[in-house]
Structure formats: structure tokens, C-alpha cells
Design a protein around this nucleic acid. Structure first.
Lengths: 233, 233
DNA sequence: GTCAAAAATTGATTAATGTCAATTTTTGAC
DNA sequence: GTCAAAAATTGACATTAATCAATTTTTGAC
């Protein structure tokens, strides 16, 4: 049950954008799109840059973040394979508002601006999917601001772990095999706290046998305890 | 200078949706839209309800909020006249994710779902404006989450006051005549803190002659001091 | 496997913010 | 204007989380 809620409240839904297109549309899409490997830690785009197209994440993981006035990253989203990146600024005709950076070796497909806009012009379906997805994002972001405005660090950590458990789930493998691989700094920057505070709370969850760690990797043993800790409905 | 930044980072831009429409489109829009007065404190829609149309705020102010798991309001946006409400859930085909409630006596125009969707079907311009506005909202919300994740209560209060100063500005009146009228509870629920903490910080700002209060009303004397306090760029 | 660099962890302390319980002020109806 | 109810303010205290300074563990290149 909680899994559907996590999905609904944390997933942006930019996969599906290019589903159900006609042959013609697909061939236009592929005509000038290029696939490119990225190493772990490579920046895909930066805040302030002008977009020249959009990206599709074919494999790997990408963190999306802003950099606050004090220079610290705020990671507000983790993309997994299938999701699109960079369409907001293309559509709003504004420079990028955020940074995108790979968390592991990844493959991205670049779709040039003119191709994407031509497709958008031609495909009523793509248009509707974008409108629907962007409107859905609204609910994701107001949930997120509410969590930050009202929940404690412990509660936010519990929620983040549940969210990451879904992001790192591997299709076809059992639930309890999920390993969350993320630096402590990144995890702290997801929940908006100091690394030291994060580490202390992880230790508490470990002592309560809610999670276990192998090196930096985290495995969630009792998701339902996290739901309880998060005070989450 | 800071005023433009505040506008860019805090304004959703749903005014303009119906600008520049053809005579035909306008007459369709007006054919079945109804204007209706709302008293201060009336709820316009609630989270979980299914939308039956969208609203245009012709006069007055509306707070948009969620209710957190502990029952507290999180006010994430203040609408002023000209802005639209409720279009997200109509477009995402999901129940309302938030509450809308008038902060003062207001007038709202209701546009039924079928009219709005027909217009959307017919007007490429409306379609593009929605896509552009919804994408822009993304930048507003990630700014907002970053502020909550990284800034102190004092900094958030300074930012909220600057934002409200723009919202409560009256066209044609001098800047220093703006009076922010909002209950302390509402203001606390905007910045995500306890009412008592908010009151203490307001007192500090008062002692530093950055603001002055008349009853519950707040007048900003030195916006630039607030920019400095907010550590804001 | 080895080893240096990077990352994670821990401890001690300080600072920020929340909570609870009065008390005072303001508001809005009459 | 009057007055009760609602809202705002203040004080004392508890709790949460941040910071600073070690120390230990892990990682990744060789």
C-alpha cells in the first residue's frame, strides 16, 4: 500500500512521454537523437545554461539539484532509467534552473530542441502527455515542500529511504535485495540536513534493525517501520 | 533589482492564460462562466475533491495550502487578483492535491471543465501558455524546496516578507504604503515554523526598524535589510 | 592485496527552534 | 464605545539539529 503512495507522491512521470507515438513520429525522434555514455559524476547541464534539447536517461541514475546561496547542494529528485531531463527549461524558455549530474555510469540520449519542438507541434498526444505530467508534478512538489516545512529530519530520512528503495529496486529481483548506493553527503543533501546528523540517525535505524548497511550501501529491512517513523499517510 | 528576482522566483504566472484570445474564444469562455462572491475564510476547494472546472480570482486574495500528517496547514502560495486556481488537477486528471481558501472577501469566476477543455482543444495559444506556465512553475517550486531545505527560519521569514510585500502591493500606491495583512498563524504556516518563533523574529525585525506593525499588519521599512538577512541572491 | 586519499563516523559542544503555560492586546459584533 | 472571544505576545524550558574537531573505515587505483 505505502509503495503506491510513495510512487504517487515522489514520481514525476516523465517516462511515457514518447510512448504510443506513430511510426512517422518515432522516426523523426530517432533521426537526429544521439546516445552518449556518461561517467559517474559527470554534469549533464548546469543552472543558468540555455537548453539546446532534452535528454532521455536510458540507463543509470541522475541527481537533479540546485545550489543554495551558501553553496550547498539541494538534491530534489533522482532520475532512473526511462525518465526525461531538461524539458522544463525548454518549454518555459528559461535557462536551466537546476543541475543534472550522473550518480553512476549512465547512458543518455539527446534530442535536439528543434526535433522536440517539431514533435510537440505535430503530436497532440505528446502535448497532452506533457500537460498532464507537468500538472502532476505540481502535486509532487507541494508534497515535497510540505514535508520540508513540517517534518523532522528523522521523518524526512525515513521518507527518503522509502523513496530511494523504489528508485533502486531492480526489476525482477526480490524487494529485500534492494541496495541503496549513495554517498552520505548526497543522502544528507536529499533530506536537507548535516551529514553528521544523518549518520547518527542511520545508526539509530541500524540499532533498531530497520536497516542494515554494507559499506556505504543501505538495505531496508523493515519498510513498514519507516512508514511508522515517518508518520506518513 | 531584488523585486524582479522575487517575482521570478515566487510568481506562478497563471494570469495571462486568457490573454490575447480571439473574440470567438472569449465569447465561449464567457458563455457559461459565473462570477461569485466569497467571504473571507471560505474554502473554494479541498484536497481529495474532484475538480469540475477552474477558478479565476477577479478580486481578493486566496491562500493555497496542504494539510500535513499532523494536521497543520502548509501555505505554499498566495494568489492575488488575476491568477487562476485549480487548473493543475483538471489537467492531471487527479483529485485536488491542496486546499484553496480566501484570505479576504473575494470574487471568483468559475469556468466549467468542459468549456475550459474545449478552449484548450481549440486554442493552440492557450495550450502553449499552459505548457510554458507549468514548466515555469517547476523553477518556482524547486526554489521553494531549496529554501526550506537550507535556510533558517529567520532567512525564510525575510524572504516571505519580501514576497508578501509584492503580493500586497497596490497598483498606483507608493511602495512604502504596502501593508501585509495576515494572521500570525498564516504567516507561520507560510514559513513553516511555530507561531511563537515567528513572533519573536518579527519583534527582532521591529527592534532593528526593518519593519513596523500596526495591529496585526506589517509594513516593510527596509526591504534591502531583508534581502541581506535572507542571504539572498 | 596494498595504500593513500576520500568518505564516514563519533564525541563534545553550541545554536536554533519547538512546546507549554501564562498574560496582554486586538478584533469584530453589538 | 463596550466587551467577550480570538489572536498575539512573552517567558521558561525542552528538544532538535548544526558545528567543530578528531578518529576510523572504506574506496578505488595500482
Amino acid at each position: 500500500m505505502y509503495r503506491e503512495i510513495i510512487y504517487k507522491k515522489y514520481h514525476l512521470g516523465s517516462d511515457f512521454f514518447f510512448e504510443g507515438m506513430t511510426e512517422e513520429e518515432l522516426s523523426l525522434l530517432h533521426s537526429r537523437s544521439v546516445s552518449h555514455p556518461y561517467q559517474k559524476g559527470q554534469v549533464i547541464f548546469r543552472a543558468g545554461m540555455t537548453p539546446t534539447g532534452i535528454y532521455l536517461l536510458s540507463s543509470g541514475k541522475v541527481k537533479k539539484y540546485t545550489i543554495g546561496d551558501d553553496g550547498k547542494q539541494h538534491i530534489f529528485y533522482i532520475c532512473k532509467s526511462g525518465e526525461a531531463l531538461g524539458y522544463h527549461s525548454l518549454l518555459s524558455e528559461e535557462p536551466y534552473a537546476d543541475y543534472a549530474e550522473t550518480l553512476e555510469d549512465s547512458t543518455l540520449t539527446f534530442i535536439p530542441k528543434d526535433i522536440f519542438l517539431t514533435l510537440l507541434e505535430q503530436s497532440k498526444q505528446l502535448n497532452q502527455k506533457l500537460l498532464k505530467s507537468l500538472s502532476h508534478e505540481f502535486s509532487v512538489f507541494i508534497h515535497s515542500t510540505t514535508v520540508f516545512a513540517q517534518k523532522t529530519v528523522r521523518e524526512r530520512l525515513a521518507l527518503a529511504l522509502l523513496m530511494l528503495n523504489e528508485k533502486y529496486r531492480i526489476h525482477g529481483k526480490p524487494d529485500n535485495a534492494v541496495e541503496i548506493t549513495l554517498s552520505r553527503d548526497d543522502l544528507a543533501n536529499i533530506i536537507g540536513t548535516a551529514k553528521e546528523t544523518l549518520v547518527r540517525m542511520l545508526r539509530e535505524f541500524k540499532e533498531d534493525h530497520v536497516i542494515e548497511t554494507h559499506g556505504r550501501n543501505i538495505r531496508i529491512l523493515q519498510p513498514k517501520s519507516l512508514v511508522r517513523v515517518a508518520n506518513f499517510s
